[in-house]
C-alpha cells in the first residue's frame, strides 16, 4: 500500500514538474532535473512514511489534499542550487 502510494505520488509529481517546465532548457538538464526530483521525492516518502500515513488518515484529508501534499514535498527542490540538482540528478541517471 505504502509503495503504491509512493509510486502514485512520484507519478503525479513528475506530471506536475512537466507542466511547470515552461522554459526551454537543454534536454540533458531537463533529464537531470527530473531524475533529481524523482530521487528527492522518493527519499522524502521513505523518510516520512509514518507522518504521511498519519496525514492520510487525518480528519482533514480531502480529495485535493494529496496534490497539496505532493506539491509541498516536491517544492523543497528549490532549496538546491542548479549545480547540486544537476550533479545529483546526473548521478541518478548514470
Amino acid at each position: 500500500m505504502a509503495n503504491q502510494q509512493q509510486q502514485r505520488m512520484a507519478a503525479t509529481a513528475s506530471n506536475q514538474a512537466d507542466a511547470q517546465e515552461q522554459q526551454l532548457r537543454p534536454v540533458q538538464q531537463v533529464e537531470q532535473d527530473k531524475a533529481f526530483e524523482a530521487y528527492y521525492l522518493q527519499q522524502l516518502t521513505k523518510e516520512f512514511a509514518n507522518d504521511l500515513d498519519k496525514l492520510r488518515s487525518a480528519g482533514d484529508f480531502r480529495e485535493q489534499s494529496l496534490g497539496v501534499l505532493i506539491a509541498a514535498l516536491n517544492q523543497g527542490t528549490a532549496c538546491f542550487s542548479k549545480e547540486e540538482r544537476a550533479r545529483i540528478g546526473d548521478a541518478q541517471l548514470n
Binding site: 507522518d51 498519519k54 496525514l55 487525518a58 480528519g59 482533514d60 484529508f61 480531502r62 489534499s65 497539496v68 501534499l69 506539491a71 509541498a72 517544492q75 528549490a78
Partner: peptide
C-alpha cells in the same frame, strides 16, 4: 500540528518566501 491544513499552509508560506 501535523494536519493537512498545516502542511498546506506551510507549503504556501514556503512559496511566498521563494
Amino acid at each position: 500540528k501535523l494536519t493537512n491544513t498545516w502542511i498546506g499552509y506551510a507549503s504556501f508560506l514556503f512559496e511566498i518566501v521563494n
